[in-house]
Amino acid sequence: MLTDSERFAFETRRHHAFASTGNAYDASQCDEAIKTGDTLIVLAEEVVAIAMTWPFAVTATCGKLHSLSAPRPGENLAALALSLHVRAADFRHAADLARRLGFPIDPQLIPLLDMPAE
Rank of each mutant, 00 (worst) to 15 (best):
E32S: 13
A88F: 00
T3F: 13
T3C: 10
H16S: 11
N23M: 11
H15V: 10
E75Y: 01
H15I: 11
I50M: 07
D38G: 07
Q108K: 13
C62I: 07
F10V: 11
L101Q: 10
M1W: 12
G63C: 09
A95C: 15
L68D: 07
A79R: 03
S5D: 14
D38T: 07
P104K: 06
A57I: 10
V48Q: 03
L2I: 12
A49N: 08
A70N: 13
L97Y: 10
R99E: 14
L43V: 09
F18T: 08
Q29E: 04
D106P: 07
L84H: 01
A81E: 00
L77E: 03
G22T: 14
D106T: 06
L109A: 02
D106I: 01
G74T: 12
V48K: 01
A70Q: 14
D38R: 05
S28R: 01
D26R: 11
F103D: 01
N23K: 12
A95E: 04
P107E: 08
A89S: 15
T61E: 15
F91V: 02
H85G: 06
P111A: 06
G37R: 01
T39Q: 05
F10Y: 15
G22E: 15
N76M: 06
D106Q: 11
A33Y: 10
D38V: 03
V86H: 03
F56S: 03
T36W: 03
D96Q: 13
C62H: 15
D31F: 05
A60P: 11
R99I: 06
R99C: 10
D31I: 03
